Structures are given as C-alpha cells and as structure tokens.
Simulated scan of single mutants.
Amino acid sequence: MVPLPQRLFAELFGTFWLVLGGCGSAVLAAGVANVGIGYLGVALAFGLTVLTMAYSIGHISGCHLNPAVTIGLWAGRRFPTSHILPYIIAQVIGAIIAAGVVLLIAKGQPGYVLGPTGLAVNGYGVQSPGGYSLLSGLVIEIVLTFGFLIVIMGATDTRAPSGFAPLAIGLALTLIHLIAIPVTNTSVNPARSTGPALFVGGLALHQLWLFWVAPIVGGLLAGLTYRALAGEPPLPQVTGEPL
C-alpha cells in the first residue's frame, strides 16, 4: 500500500487539477466572445480532469478528489475511518490553491472584477445561474451525488470490467454538469465549492453549507445503497485499495 503522506499529496494535487481545469474553464474560457466553450465545454472540462487524474493517481490514492466520494466509499466499506479527515483536508487545500491560481490568472485581464458569482461559485436563488431555489439546489445535489457514487462504486467493483472505471467516472461527471450547471453551477463536491467561495466571500460563503450537506448526504446514501445491492465485502478485504 502507498504510504499515507504520498496518498494525501496525490489527493491535494488531483483536487487542485479538478478545480483548476473545471472552474478555470468556466472563468477563463466559457464566456469568451465568439469562441467561448459554454456549458458543454465546462462540463467536458470537469469530466476530463477526473478522467486524467483517475489514470494518473488512481493507483496511488484512489483519486477521490471529493469529500463526498471519500465519505461515500467509507459508507460502502471501501475506505477506513482513520483516513477520512486527512483526505478531506488535503482535498480542500488543493481546491483552495487552485481557486487562488484561477483568480491570479483572471486578474491579468484588464478590467477584471471579482463579482459575487465569480470563480464559478456554486449557489441557489440569486447565486444560481438559472435562478433556481434552495429546494431545487438541495434535491439536484443530493440526487446527482448519489448517482455519481453509484457509478464510482459500480465501475470500481472487482467484478466490473477492468481498466474502464476512469472513463465511466469522467463521463458521469460530464453528464452531471450538463444537468446541473444551470441550477447550482454544479457542485457534487464540497471541496470544489469551498475553494472559490472562500475567495468570493459574501453570499457564496453563506450558501456554502448546502454544498457540503447535500453532496455528503448523497454520498452516504449511495454507499449504503450499493453495499446493500451488490453485497460488498467487509472493510478489511478492501482497505486502502485505490479506485
């Protein structure tokens, strides 16, 4: 098994890559006149970050990159309790660093101002791209995180075809963003939400609670559900195994 410090650095860097690629594409490329990549491009960017990191660091840390994934895998008896907090801390640090890098790059454009919805922050109500309510945001984040964890656990099950898990997981995250960007700007990941919100502050920070609670609830439900459906083996047989 890879030692914990190396696994934590892999999680930090992987989450950095996810936020840099996903939020960076939304901030720097989505709205560029005539050549902007739009919602489809941002959705693909998020999916590609997970796909590339799953192949790069999956064998090191499991490539969670997301507190909801870590907690969901724990609920599914795929991950030890003692490593939950260190993994989450590493993921949040990586997301914060990436959000800072995106902001630093964005400030290089003349006239750039960090607004209340800047850095691709997540939100509901006036913070939602489509003006969707708190209830809409809560439901979609729970449901989509649940689906994401089911895909992750199914694709990485030892009984599934080997070698294709990163493709399934990356495409699932792309699909999730295609559905949810207009509603909440798509979180399904508390770390991804925390990094940008800390720099934007204000309402983005006040609404951050939803993007911790909903994904974690979805992840927990998925872990328990998959274990019940698939008859997952007990933790000692899978502790430390990467995705």
Rank of each mutant, 00 (worst) to 15 (best):
M1N: 14
Q6N: 12
F9E: 02
A10F: 10
A10I: 00
L12C: 06
F13W: 02
G14Q: 00
F16Y: 08
F16E: 01
L20I: 05
G21H: 01
G22M: 01
C23Q: 01
C23S: 12
V27L: 03
L28E: 01
V32D: 08
N34S: 05
G36K: 07
Y39I: 11
Y39N: 04
L40H: 07
L44Y: 04
L48Q: 03
T49A: 14
V50R: 03
L51K: 10
M53G: 03
M53Q: 13
A54P: 02
Y55D: 02
S56R: 03
H64I: 03
L65V: 01
I71S: 11
G72I: 05
G72N: 01
L73Y: 06
W74L: 12
A75L: 10
R78G: 14
F79Y: 15
F79T: 12
T81N: 07
S82C: 05
L85C: 09
L85I: 15
P86F: 03
Q91K: 05
V92M: 14
V92P: 00
I96W: 08
A99F: 00
A99M: 00
V101M: 00
V102W: 06
L103K: 01
I105R: 05
A106I: 01
G108P: 02
P110C: 01
Y112K: 00
L114S: 08
G115N: 10
P116N: 14
G118Y: 09
G118H: 08
L119M: 02
N122F: 11
G123E: 09
Y124M: 13
V126A: 15
P129M: 00
L134G: 07
L135A: 15
I140M: 06
I142F: 09
L144C: 09
L144V: 10
T145V: 04
F146M: 10
F146N: 11
G147L: 11
F148W: 14
I152R: 04
D157Q: 03
T158P: 02
R159H: 11
A160D: 03
S162C: 00
F164I: 14
P166H: 02
L167V: 13
L167W: 13
G170R: 10
A172I: 01
T174P: 00
L178D: 06
A180V: 00
V183L: 13
T184F: 08
T184W: 08
T184H: 13
N185R: 12
T186Q: 05
N189V: 04
A191C: 05
S193V: 11
T194L: 03
P196R: 05
A197Y: 05
G202K: 05
G202Q: 07
L205C: 06
H206E: 12
Q207G: 14
Q207I: 05
W209S: 14
W209N: 15
W209P: 15
L210K: 15
F211K: 14
W212C: 14
A214Q: 15
P215A: 12
I216H: 10
A222K: 01
A222L: 09
A230P: 01
G231R: 07
G231L: 04
G231V: 04
E232V: 10
P236A: 08
Q237T: 12
T239G: 08
E241S: 07
